[in-house]
Design a protein around this nucleic acid. Sequence first.
DNA 1: CATTCGTGAAGACGAAT
DNA 2: ATTCGATTTCACGAATG
Length: 333
Amino acid sequence: MSSVDTKTGSDAVETEIQVESRTETGGERESVCPECGARLTTDAGRAETTCTECGLVVTERHVDRGPEWRSFDTGERNTRSRVGAPTTKLLHDKGLSSHIGWENRDGKGSTLSPSQRRRMGRLRTWDERFRAKSHDDRNLKQALGEIQRMGSALGLPDEVRETASVIYRRAQAEDLLPGRTIEAISTAALYAAARQMDNPRSIDEVAAVSRIGEQEFKRAYRYLVRELELPVKPANPQQFIGRLASALDAEPATERQARALLTAAEGTGIFTGKSPVGLAAAALYAGSQLSGERLTQDQVSEVAEVSNVTIRNRYKELLEQYEKNRVDAAGRV
DNA sequence: CATTCGTGAAGACGAAT
DNA sequence: ATTCGATTTCACGAATG
Protein backbone atom coordinates (compact mmCIF):
# COMPACT_ATOMS: atom_id res chain seq x y z
CA MET A 1 0.00 0.00 0.00
CA SER A 2 2.75 2.36 0.84
CA SER A 3 4.37 2.15 -2.56
CA VAL A 4 1.36 3.53 -4.39
CA ASP A 5 0.40 6.33 -2.09
CA THR A 6 1.29 9.02 -4.59
CA LYS A 7 -1.21 7.69 -7.06
CA THR A 8 -4.01 7.08 -4.64
CA GLY A 9 -3.20 10.38 -3.05
CA SER A 10 -3.74 12.34 -6.21
CA ASP A 11 -6.91 10.45 -7.03
CA ALA A 12 -8.25 11.28 -3.63
CA VAL A 13 -7.48 14.89 -4.25
CA GLU A 14 -9.34 14.87 -7.50
CA THR A 15 -12.59 13.56 -6.08
CA GLU A 16 -12.27 15.89 -3.18
CA ILE A 17 -11.87 18.93 -5.37
CA GLN A 18 -14.87 18.03 -7.45
CA VAL A 19 -17.05 17.82 -4.42
CA GLU A 20 -15.75 21.09 -3.16
CA SER A 21 -16.16 22.93 -6.42
CA ARG A 22 -19.78 21.90 -6.67
CA THR A 23 -20.50 23.16 -3.22
CA GLU A 24 -22.14 26.52 -3.31
CA THR A 25 -21.17 29.21 -0.91
CA GLY A 26 -22.29 28.42 2.60
CA GLY A 27 -25.97 29.05 3.08
CA GLU A 28 -26.73 29.55 6.75
CA ARG A 29 -26.03 33.07 7.83
CA GLU A 30 -28.74 32.86 10.50
CA SER A 31 -27.35 31.75 13.83
CA VAL A 32 -27.83 32.46 17.49
CA CYS A 33 -25.36 33.05 20.24
CA PRO A 34 -24.54 29.90 22.23
CA GLU A 35 -24.35 31.99 25.39
CA CYS A 36 -27.34 34.27 25.45
CA GLY A 37 -29.41 33.13 22.46
CA ALA A 38 -29.45 36.57 20.87
CA ARG A 39 -28.92 37.16 17.20
CA LEU A 40 -25.46 37.11 15.73
CA THR A 41 -24.08 39.60 13.25
CA THR A 42 -21.37 38.85 10.80
CA ASP A 43 -18.79 41.37 9.85
CA ALA A 44 -17.68 40.23 6.43
CA GLY A 45 -14.77 42.59 6.28
CA ARG A 46 -13.25 41.33 9.49
CA ALA A 47 -14.43 37.76 8.92
CA GLU A 48 -15.84 37.78 12.42
CA THR A 49 -19.16 36.79 13.84
CA THR A 50 -20.22 38.47 17.04
CA CYS A 51 -23.22 38.39 19.33
CA THR A 52 -25.33 41.52 19.47
CA GLU A 53 -26.04 41.10 23.17
CA CYS A 54 -23.05 39.76 25.02
CA GLY A 55 -20.37 40.59 22.47
CA LEU A 56 -19.17 37.02 22.24
CA VAL A 57 -16.99 36.48 19.20
CA VAL A 58 -17.93 33.23 17.55
CA THR A 59 -15.57 33.52 14.58
CA GLU A 60 -16.82 31.14 12.02
CA ARG A 61 -14.62 29.56 9.42
CA HIS A 62 -14.95 32.03 6.65
CA VAL A 63 -13.62 29.81 3.93
CA ASP A 64 -11.79 31.80 1.34
CA ARG A 65 -13.21 30.23 -1.77
CA GLY A 66 -12.00 30.97 -5.21
CA PRO A 67 -8.52 31.84 -6.33
CA GLU A 68 -8.64 35.54 -5.73
CA TRP A 69 -5.36 35.30 -3.90
CA ARG A 70 -3.41 36.27 -6.95
CA SER A 71 -2.52 39.84 -6.37
CA PHE A 72 0.37 40.50 -8.67
CA ASP A 73 -0.18 41.77 -12.16
CA THR A 74 1.40 40.67 -15.37
CA GLY A 75 3.88 43.50 -15.27
CA GLU A 76 5.34 42.04 -12.15
CA ARG A 77 6.23 38.95 -14.08
CA ASN A 78 9.74 40.12 -14.69
CA THR A 79 10.62 40.91 -11.12
CA ARG A 80 9.13 37.74 -9.76
CA SER A 81 11.31 35.35 -7.90
CA ARG A 82 12.20 32.26 -9.82
CA VAL A 83 12.31 30.17 -6.71
CA GLY A 84 9.20 28.17 -5.94
CA ALA A 85 5.67 28.73 -7.01
CA PRO A 86 4.28 32.17 -6.30
CA THR A 87 1.57 30.66 -4.20
CA THR A 88 3.77 30.00 -1.21
CA LYS A 89 3.59 33.39 0.39
CA LEU A 90 -0.08 33.99 0.11
CA LEU A 91 -1.71 30.64 0.11
CA HIS A 92 0.55 28.01 1.53
CA ASP A 93 -0.88 26.75 4.82
CA LYS A 94 -2.35 30.20 5.38
CA GLY A 95 0.44 30.54 7.93
CA LEU A 96 -1.13 27.92 10.14
CA SER A 97 1.46 25.19 10.06
CA SER A 98 4.53 25.16 12.19
CA HIS A 99 7.95 24.86 10.78
CA ILE A 100 11.12 23.38 12.17
CA GLY A 101 13.82 25.92 11.63
CA TRP A 102 17.44 25.27 10.86
CA GLU A 103 18.88 26.71 14.03
CA ASN A 104 19.89 24.02 16.47
CA ARG A 105 18.52 25.78 19.50
CA ASP A 106 15.69 25.05 21.80
CA GLY A 107 12.86 27.32 22.77
CA LYS A 108 15.02 29.32 25.16
CA GLY A 109 17.79 29.83 22.63
CA SER A 110 20.33 27.48 24.16
CA THR A 111 22.12 25.01 21.94
CA LEU A 112 21.12 21.37 21.66
CA SER A 113 23.10 18.30 22.56
CA PRO A 114 24.42 16.21 19.64
CA SER A 115 21.79 13.52 20.11
CA GLN A 116 19.02 16.07 20.20
CA ARG A 117 20.53 17.67 17.16
CA ARG A 118 20.38 14.43 15.19
CA ARG A 119 16.84 13.92 16.32
CA MET A 120 15.83 17.35 15.14
CA GLY A 121 17.57 16.69 11.86
CA ARG A 122 15.39 13.67 11.23
CA LEU A 123 12.26 15.56 12.21
CA ARG A 124 13.25 18.37 9.94
CA THR A 125 13.54 15.96 7.06
CA TRP A 126 10.03 14.73 7.56
CA ASP A 127 8.76 18.22 8.18
CA GLU A 128 10.07 19.21 4.78
CA ARG A 129 8.60 16.14 3.14
CA PHE A 130 5.14 16.79 4.48
CA ARG A 131 5.44 20.41 3.69
CA ALA A 132 6.37 19.71 0.09
CA LYS A 133 3.59 17.20 -0.30
CA SER A 134 0.92 19.42 1.09
CA HIS A 135 2.24 22.25 -0.98
CA ASP A 136 1.90 20.20 -4.13
CA ASP A 137 -1.58 19.19 -3.08
CA ARG A 138 -2.69 22.73 -2.58
CA ASN A 139 -1.10 23.64 -5.82
CA LEU A 140 -3.03 20.92 -7.57
CA LYS A 141 -6.29 21.76 -5.90
CA GLN A 142 -5.96 25.33 -6.97
CA ALA A 143 -5.14 24.33 -10.51
CA LEU A 144 -7.97 21.83 -10.80
CA GLY A 145 -10.38 24.42 -9.52
CA GLU A 146 -9.23 26.83 -12.16
CA ILE A 147 -9.46 24.23 -14.89
CA GLN A 148 -12.93 23.36 -13.74
CA ARG A 149 -14.02 26.97 -13.70
CA MET A 150 -12.58 27.91 -17.07
CA GLY A 151 -13.74 24.67 -18.62
CA SER A 152 -17.33 25.27 -17.75
CA ALA A 153 -17.11 28.91 -18.76
CA LEU A 154 -15.99 27.73 -22.17
CA GLY A 155 -18.56 24.97 -22.34
CA LEU A 156 -15.97 22.26 -22.66
CA PRO A 157 -16.97 18.66 -21.94
CA ASP A 158 -15.70 16.81 -18.91
CA GLU A 159 -13.24 14.72 -20.88
CA VAL A 160 -11.39 17.85 -21.87
CA ARG A 161 -11.14 18.97 -18.29
CA GLU A 162 -9.91 15.57 -17.25
CA THR A 163 -7.28 15.64 -19.94
CA ALA A 164 -6.30 19.08 -18.79
CA SER A 165 -5.80 17.90 -15.24
CA VAL A 166 -3.75 14.98 -16.45
CA ILE A 167 -1.54 17.40 -18.35
CA TYR A 168 -1.26 19.59 -15.29
CA ARG A 169 -0.19 16.67 -13.17
CA ARG A 170 2.42 15.69 -15.68
CA ALA A 171 3.75 19.23 -15.59
CA GLN A 172 3.86 19.05 -11.83
CA ALA A 173 5.55 15.67 -11.85
CA GLU A 174 8.24 16.95 -14.18
CA ASP A 175 8.94 20.04 -12.11
CA LEU A 176 7.75 22.44 -14.75
CA LEU A 177 5.91 24.67 -12.33
CA PRO A 178 8.57 26.72 -10.60
CA GLY A 179 8.74 30.17 -12.06
CA ARG A 180 5.26 29.99 -13.56
CA THR A 181 1.92 30.80 -12.08
CA ILE A 182 -0.68 28.18 -11.42
CA GLU A 183 -3.12 30.05 -13.59
CA ALA A 184 -0.73 30.12 -16.49
CA ILE A 185 -0.13 26.40 -16.43
CA SER A 186 -3.79 25.61 -15.80
CA THR A 187 -4.89 27.77 -18.67
CA ALA A 188 -2.29 26.31 -20.97
CA ALA A 189 -3.22 22.78 -19.95
CA LEU A 190 -6.87 23.42 -20.67
CA TYR A 191 -6.17 24.97 -24.03
CA ALA A 192 -3.90 22.10 -25.00
CA ALA A 193 -6.46 19.55 -23.82
CA ALA A 194 -9.22 21.19 -25.83
CA ARG A 195 -7.12 20.96 -28.94
CA GLN A 196 -6.09 17.40 -28.29
CA MET A 197 -9.71 16.38 -27.91
CA ASP A 198 -10.64 17.99 -31.23
CA ASN A 199 -12.72 20.60 -29.51
CA PRO A 200 -10.46 23.61 -29.78
CA ARG A 201 -11.13 27.07 -28.49
CA SER A 202 -9.35 30.09 -29.83
CA ILE A 203 -6.58 31.72 -27.89
CA ASP A 204 -8.80 34.72 -27.40
CA GLU A 205 -11.66 32.70 -26.03
CA VAL A 206 -9.48 30.97 -23.51
CA ALA A 207 -7.66 34.12 -22.53
CA ALA A 208 -11.00 35.82 -21.94
CA VAL A 209 -11.91 33.46 -19.10
CA SER A 210 -8.45 33.14 -17.69
CA ARG A 211 -7.01 35.33 -15.02
CA ILE A 212 -3.74 35.77 -16.79
CA GLY A 213 -2.83 37.88 -19.77
CA GLU A 214 -2.70 36.54 -23.26
CA GLN A 215 1.05 36.90 -23.48
CA GLU A 216 1.76 34.89 -20.41
CA PHE A 217 -0.79 32.32 -21.45
CA LYS A 218 0.82 31.74 -24.82
CA ARG A 219 4.25 31.51 -23.27
CA ALA A 220 3.07 28.89 -20.83
CA TYR A 221 1.36 26.96 -23.57
CA ARG A 222 4.41 26.79 -25.80
CA TYR A 223 6.51 25.90 -22.82
CA LEU A 224 4.18 23.06 -21.90
CA VAL A 225 4.01 21.70 -25.41
CA ARG A 226 7.76 21.78 -25.76
CA GLU A 227 8.66 20.28 -22.40
CA LEU A 228 5.93 17.69 -22.31
CA GLU A 229 6.09 16.99 -26.04
CA LEU A 230 2.36 17.12 -26.22
CA PRO A 231 0.98 15.75 -29.48
CA VAL A 232 -1.08 18.69 -30.61
CA LYS A 233 -1.89 18.92 -34.27
CA PRO A 234 -2.46 22.25 -35.94
CA ALA A 235 -6.07 23.21 -35.43
CA ASN A 236 -8.40 22.75 -38.37
CA PRO A 237 -10.33 25.91 -39.24
CA GLN A 238 -13.41 23.78 -39.91
CA GLN A 239 -13.65 23.17 -36.19
CA PHE A 240 -14.45 26.83 -35.61
CA ILE A 241 -17.05 27.20 -38.33
CA GLY A 242 -19.91 25.73 -36.38
CA ARG A 243 -19.59 27.90 -33.31
CA LEU A 244 -18.87 31.04 -35.26
CA ALA A 245 -21.82 30.45 -37.55
CA SER A 246 -24.22 30.04 -34.67
CA ALA A 247 -22.78 33.06 -32.90
CA LEU A 248 -23.50 35.01 -36.07
CA ASP A 249 -26.93 33.47 -36.64
CA ALA A 250 -25.67 32.72 -40.10
CA GLU A 251 -27.86 30.94 -42.63
CA PRO A 252 -27.15 27.27 -43.20
CA ALA A 253 -26.30 28.03 -46.81
CA THR A 254 -23.60 30.39 -45.67
CA GLU A 255 -22.15 27.80 -43.36
CA ARG A 256 -22.16 25.21 -46.13
CA GLN A 257 -20.38 27.57 -48.45
CA ALA A 258 -17.81 28.38 -45.78
CA ARG A 259 -17.06 24.71 -45.25
CA ALA A 260 -16.79 24.13 -48.96
CA LEU A 261 -14.34 26.99 -49.26
CA LEU A 262 -12.17 25.57 -46.53
CA THR A 263 -12.31 22.09 -47.97
CA ALA A 264 -11.21 23.42 -51.31
CA ALA A 265 -8.25 25.16 -49.74
CA GLU A 266 -7.20 22.19 -47.65
CA GLY A 267 -3.74 20.93 -48.37
CA THR A 268 -2.88 23.78 -50.71
CA GLY A 269 -0.57 25.51 -48.29
CA ILE A 270 -3.00 28.33 -47.75
CA PHE A 271 -3.46 27.19 -44.18
CA THR A 272 0.16 27.02 -43.16
CA GLY A 273 1.18 29.66 -40.72
CA LYS A 274 -2.23 31.30 -40.76
CA SER A 275 -4.46 31.70 -37.78
CA PRO A 276 -7.18 29.02 -37.91
CA VAL A 277 -9.79 31.36 -36.52
CA GLY A 278 -8.90 33.95 -39.11
CA LEU A 279 -9.37 31.37 -41.85
CA ALA A 280 -12.69 30.27 -40.43
CA ALA A 281 -13.88 33.86 -40.15
CA ALA A 282 -12.78 34.64 -43.69
CA ALA A 283 -14.52 31.53 -44.97
CA LEU A 284 -17.74 32.59 -43.29
CA TYR A 285 -17.52 36.07 -44.75
CA ALA A 286 -16.78 34.76 -48.21
CA GLY A 287 -19.48 32.13 -47.80
CA SER A 288 -22.02 34.78 -46.93
CA GLN A 289 -21.14 36.67 -50.09
CA LEU A 290 -21.64 33.52 -52.14
CA SER A 291 -24.88 32.58 -50.45
CA GLY A 292 -26.26 36.07 -50.75
CA GLU A 293 -26.51 36.65 -47.01
CA ARG A 294 -23.82 39.30 -47.23
CA LEU A 295 -22.48 39.54 -43.73
CA THR A 296 -20.13 42.44 -43.24
CA GLN A 297 -16.47 41.98 -42.47
CA ASP A 298 -16.94 43.80 -39.22
CA GLN A 299 -19.78 41.54 -38.14
CA VAL A 300 -17.64 38.48 -38.62
CA SER A 301 -14.52 39.98 -37.19
CA GLU A 302 -16.48 40.99 -34.13
CA VAL A 303 -17.56 37.51 -33.09
CA ALA A 304 -14.39 35.81 -34.27
CA GLU A 305 -12.18 38.29 -32.46
CA VAL A 306 -10.10 38.67 -35.58
CA SER A 307 -9.36 41.95 -37.26
CA ASN A 308 -11.20 42.84 -40.43
CA VAL A 309 -7.86 43.22 -42.16
CA THR A 310 -7.10 39.57 -41.60
CA ILE A 311 -10.47 38.63 -43.00
CA ARG A 312 -9.77 40.75 -46.06
CA ASN A 313 -6.43 39.12 -46.63
CA ARG A 314 -7.72 35.60 -46.20
CA TYR A 315 -11.03 35.57 -47.97
CA LYS A 316 -9.54 36.57 -51.29
CA GLU A 317 -7.13 33.67 -51.16
CA LEU A 318 -9.95 31.33 -50.30
CA LEU A 319 -12.14 32.50 -53.17
CA GLU A 320 -9.22 32.27 -55.54
CA GLN A 321 -8.49 28.70 -54.61
CA TYR A 322 -12.15 27.83 -54.77
CA GLU A 323 -12.40 29.16 -58.29
CA LYS A 324 -9.32 27.26 -59.32
CA ASN A 325 -10.70 24.01 -58.00
CA ARG A 326 -14.01 24.65 -59.71
CA VAL A 327 -12.53 25.13 -63.15
CA ASP A 328 -10.24 22.16 -62.62
CA ALA A 329 -13.18 19.98 -61.82
CA ALA A 330 -15.08 21.35 -64.79
CA GLY A 331 -12.18 20.77 -67.13
CA ARG A 332 -11.65 17.23 -65.92
CA VAL A 333 -15.18 16.17 -66.80
C1' DC B 1 -23.63 57.15 -45.02
C1' DA B 2 -21.97 52.37 -44.50
C1' DT B 3 -18.96 49.17 -46.15
C1' DT B 4 -15.00 47.70 -48.31
C1' DC B 5 -10.30 48.11 -49.72
C1' DG B 6 -5.28 49.20 -49.55
C1' DT B 7 -1.36 50.79 -46.99
C1' DG B 8 2.43 51.48 -43.70
C1' DA B 9 4.02 51.05 -38.98
C1' DA B 10 4.39 48.14 -35.04
C1' DG B 11 4.36 43.96 -32.30
C1' DA B 12 4.84 38.89 -31.73
C1' DC B 13 6.38 34.58 -33.30
C1' DG B 14 9.33 30.73 -35.25
C1' DA B 15 13.42 29.64 -37.35
C1' DA B 16 18.06 30.35 -38.19
C1' DT B 17 22.62 32.29 -36.96
C1' DA C 1 20.95 36.26 -27.71
C1' DT C 2 20.04 38.53 -31.99
C1' DT C 3 18.22 38.75 -36.69
C1' DC C 4 15.08 37.75 -40.31
C1' DG C 5 10.73 36.59 -42.66
C1' DA C 6 5.87 36.01 -42.23
C1' DT C 7 1.70 37.19 -40.01
C1' DT C 8 -1.59 39.97 -37.52
C1' DT C 9 -3.32 44.19 -35.89
C1' DC C 10 -4.15 49.15 -35.79
C1' DA C 11 -5.16 53.53 -37.78
C1' DC C 12 -5.98 56.08 -41.57
C1' DG C 13 -7.83 57.59 -45.99
C1' DA C 14 -9.78 56.44 -50.47
C1' DA C 15 -13.07 54.02 -53.29
C1' DT C 16 -17.48 51.87 -53.85
C1' DG C 17 -22.43 51.11 -53.44
